[in-house]
Amino acid sequence: MKENLRQLRERGGEGGGKGVRMAGSGSERVAVELCKGINGLDKVVLRGPRGSSAEVYLYGGHVTSWRNDQREELLFVSTKEIFKPPKAIRGGIPICFPQFGSNGSLEQHGFARNKFWSIDTDPPPFPTTSKSFIDLILKPSEEDMQKWPHSYEFRLRVALGNGGDLMLTSRVRNTNADGKPFTFAFAYHTYFSVSDISEVRVEGLETLDYLDNLENKERFTEQGDALTFESEVDKVYLGAPTKIAILDHEKKRTFVLRKDGLPDAVVWNPWDKKAKTMTDFGR
């Protein structure tokens, strides 16, 4: 059976922590809690009013868990993941910045996923109806400036809606002293937890042009009614719609992705052959 995205297994070694914002009265659960995760790394746990939750590691500004109201894990994190900097975390939602893939002079997907982010104690105003959210910020170090000589503030808000929806909002501010503009690439490299990948289909990308990274970025047009998986896939869909759906027939579950300000969509699945060659990739 061809599978690569499995439900995250139970993990130990997580300590206690303290609540940093309450959802309401003392009888309610802590909406936001700062505590220790695997290998003592700092993480923030977000909790919804009906059982949903999310976990965000400050290392990488990385969402590693998202559970619905039934406590079902919706993201994949490799069981072989060691959570040991400076290696990036495999799975969850890595932040790719200021480069995506190998399209530039920096390391794969840039350096943001390999940096320790800080909790933003004074974020700019941002409307929200959720009480369960955290604001993070990343600024360049001297080492970063040597590799990529641009000054910036990258602000990330991770919010858990009252209905269990997970919302990520990113804002990048140019803080160059001379105001000189710069260009960058950015992506949420989300790993969704699904059952048998051959039972999964993606809707919303029909008739779009895409660049096939397995064919030297040659440009093609999607022909099917929906995208299905029969082998390795690595495609960049150009001008993707704001709504995309991932249907998992075996789990009878549908992920609905809504995006704004991100024009393209990447669909990647290593299939079993390539997955076996990746030392940090496991169920």
Score class of each variant (00 low, 15 high):
residue 4 N to T: 10
residue 7 Q to M: 13
residue 8 L to G: 09
residue 17 G to F: 01
residue 20 V to N: 01
residue 27 S to N: 11
residue 30 V to G: 00
residue 32 V to H: 02
residue 32 V to A: 02
residue 34 L to T: 00
residue 36 K to E: 02
residue 37 G to Y: 00
residue 38 I to W: 00
residue 39 N to T: 01
residue 40 G to V: 03
residue 41 L to G: 03
residue 42 D to K: 05
residue 43 K to R: 14
residue 45 V to H: 02
residue 47 R to W: 05
residue 48 G to D: 02
residue 48 G to A: 09
residue 50 R to C: 10
residue 50 R to Q: 13
residue 52 S to H: 05
residue 56 V to E: 04
residue 58 L to H: 03
residue 59 Y to F: 15
residue 61 G to N: 06
residue 62 H to G: 07
residue 62 H to Y: 08
residue 63 V to L: 06
residue 65 S to F: 04
residue 70 Q to Y: 11
residue 73 E to S: 14
residue 76 F to G: 08
residue 77 V to A: 10
residue 78 S to D: 08
residue 78 S to F: 03
residue 81 E to A: 07
residue 81 E to N: 10
residue 81 E to S: 07
residue 85 P to S: 07
residue 86 P to R: 13
residue 93 I to M: 15
residue 94 P to W: 06
residue 94 P to S: 09
residue 98 P to D: 04
residue 101 G to M: 04
residue 108 Q to M: 12
residue 109 H to I: 02
residue 110 G to T: 01
residue 110 G to Y: 03
residue 111 F to G: 02
residue 117 W to D: 01
residue 119 I to L: 05
residue 124 P to Q: 05
residue 129 T to C: 07
residue 129 T to P: 01
residue 130 S to T: 04
residue 133 F to Y: 09
residue 133 F to A: 00
residue 135 D to W: 03
residue 136 L to T: 01
residue 137 I to D: 00
residue 141 S to V: 02
residue 145 M to E: 11
residue 146 Q to S: 10
residue 147 K to D: 08
residue 152 Y to E: 01
residue 154 F to I: 02
residue 155 R to V: 02
residue 162 N to C: 10
residue 163 G to L: 10
residue 163 G to V: 07
residue 167 M to P: 05
residue 168 L to Y: 03
residue 168 L to I: 07
residue 171 R to S: 14
residue 174 N to M: 11
residue 174 N to D: 14
residue 175 T to K: 15
residue 176 N to A: 13
residue 176 N to P: 12
residue 176 N to D: 15
residue 177 A to S: 15
residue 179 G to K: 07
residue 183 T to M: 09
residue 184 F to I: 08
residue 187 A to L: 13
residue 188 Y to E: 15
residue 190 T to V: 15
residue 193 S to D: 15
residue 193 S to H: 14
residue 198 S to A: 15
residue 199 E to G: 14
residue 199 E to I: 04
residue 202 V to F: 06
residue 204 G to D: 05
residue 205 L to N: 06
residue 207 T to H: 12
residue 209 D to G: 07
residue 209 D to K: 14
residue 210 Y to L: 05
residue 212 D to M: 05
residue 214 L to P: 02
residue 222 E to P: 02
residue 223 Q to H: 11
residue 232 E to I: 06
residue 238 L to M: 13
residue 243 K to H: 14
residue 243 K to N: 15
residue 244 I to L: 13
residue 251 K to T: 12
residue 257 L to W: 14
residue 257 L to F: 15
residue 263 P to F: 11
residue 264 D to F: 10
residue 268 W to A: 12
residue 270 P to I: 09
residue 273 K to F: 08
residue 274 K to D: 08
residue 275 A to C: 10
residue 277 T to Q: 13
